[in-house]
């Protein structure tokens, strides 16, 4: 974990900002930049690039909020990080604890 802050400044920033704002039950951040090497967002193909992220987050903060509103909450929080030239792509999966439970029970059936 200690390496995160040094080599992955954006990753660490996302992690701390999201945790502080949403107090998530579960938070997964995946840096997918490597998969997009050579693509417009990561043209240099730098293996340490921080351009493409996937965030999966379960939080009570999303309770009774439509998806568009949940995404906006995250976008607002990460406004600076989403400016052109920084994070190029951010995939979001934002669920409430009860939605996540439902999904998990479906999977086990």
């Amino acid at each position: 974990m200690a390496n995160n802050a040094v080599g992955r400044p954006l990753f660490s920033l996302l992690d701390s900002k999201l945790r502080a704002a949403f107090n998530p039950v579960n938070l997964t951040i995946v840096n997918e930049s490597r998969m997009h090497a050579g693509h417009s967002g990561n043209p240099s193909g730098d293996p340490d690039a921080e351009t493409h992220f996937r965030v999966e987050m379960i939080s009570e903060a999303f309770e009774k909020k439509p998806l568009v509103q949940r995404h906006r909450q995250v976008y607002d929080l990460l406004k600076e990080e989403l400016e052109p030239g920084k994070i190029h792509a951010l995939a979001l999966k934002l669920k409430t604890p009860s939605e996540a439970e439902k999904e998990a029970s479906k999977r086990t059936l």
Binding site: V68, H71, Y75
Partner: peptide
């Protein structure tokens, strides 16, 4: 007021981007 592309509108209303469409 949505920072990412693609964006989908149905009957004039903003529906969302890729993740929301997949989910819906």
């Amino acid at each position: 007021k949505w920072p990412t592309i693609p964006q989908v509108y149905v009957n004039g209303e903003f529906i969302g981007g890729c993740d929301i469409l997949v989910n819906m």
